[in-house]
Design a binder for these strands. Structure first.
Lengths: 184, 184
DNA sequence: CCGGATTTTGACCGATCGGTCAGAACCTGA
DNA sequence: TCAGGTTCTGACCGATCGGTCAAAATCCGG
């Protein structure tokens, strides 16, 4: 793999585990066995390195949220959305960790601002779908809980089960909350 | 109110909204209309200022988690715990925001390490209570979702409903997930 | 009014960070 | 072998930060 790609992967892992602000370019360079100046040759700035590392996940999540459909009325569409959402969370756990744990306090960084805008778009879509405070909370708890639990499991040192065990369980819990059989 | 107490409140609000690392002692001093050196006269260090600001909430949460009881078998105890938990979340929203959004990436800061240990203790208590992956996820989603949704609602610019509307709704959703009538 | 204790302040320090730059090293095709 | 582009590097810069310190200002009981 090229140094260019290797730097992006190392940076993503470090940003997710130690934090964007707390990860210096020098540390990324050390982990890659190169110099800080070399990192800045491949990526114009630290912000650009983060943006490139998060881009694939953000692109995919943006597509999913954009094509959310009429999630209010149609249970089938709700289930389809949840499935796509869960798949994306599992496919991009490091970026999910970044979004969930750091976008809140780093809105001056473009990539985090983009993530924050995405979360706002998602929550607004469900805000419209939900009538009562109770229902809004259900949406919030379900989606945020899924993302956060996934992101935190690594961190808390919990031995997380394999993906093909988490995926169906996640789908089950989300359906219990947002697409129960009794409804629609 | 004394400058000592005022500094703690200003710091807590800034730490929660802008982030601990991103909030300089100079900014706290400016907001309080005093000098940076004065802040460091009242609090030995930035870390100590954070620790003092978070202490009341952490103490209360620690007490709740310690007295968690046999949450596995007894539905009544589970409901009692959830009620205390929700009350604490609502009473200390700013600290909850801090814990949820920043403790992950600041474990070298003692107060955040303490928060992290608390979360681990809580998750381990439920880890024992839960038999299957599905049940573990239910606990994770419920508790993390409640905390994160509460913390994020301020941030995303959502107009959050008044507390006496959120409290019963939160309790309802958590009971649906963790203490359904059908069980026990 | 005085004197000791408390509180406040500006100047300063060392460390760290992201980023710049000129040149060295390296690779590649003619 | 040589030339031109690509990649890499160490030295350096300006800014910011948390924290120190001695001196000034303020407060308060006798």
């Amino acid at each position: 793999m090229s140094l260019h790609d290797q730097l992006r992967e190392i940076a993503l892992t470090e940003f997710a585990s130690a934090g964007y602000a707390a990860t210096s370019l020098q540390r990324i360079a050390d982990l890659a066995g190169t110099s800080k100046a070399s990192v800045l040759y491949h990526y114009a700035s630290k912000e650009q390195l983060l943006a490139d590392a998060m881009a694939p996940a953000l692109d995919e999540l943006t597509a999913i949220v954009s094509g959310i459909g009429d999630v209010a009325a149609d249970r089938a569409q709700r289930i389809a959305f949840l499935e796509r959402f869960v798949d994306a969370l599992l496919a991009h756990r490091e970026v999910v960790h970044l979004i969930v744990n750091q976008s809140a306090t780093q809105q001056d960084v473009p990539a985090f601002a983009r993530a924050q805008a995405l979360m706002r778009e998602l929550s607004e879509a469900f805000e419209l779908a939900a009538g009562s405070t109770l229902e809004k909370l259900r949406y919030g708890i379900a989606l945020a809980g899924a993302a956060y639990t996934l992101a935190a499991s690594d961190l808390l040192g919990l031995d997380s089960p394999p993906v093909d065990e988490i995926r169906p369980a996640l789908n089950t819990v989300l359906r219990e909350l947002l697409a129960p059989e009794s409804k629609d």
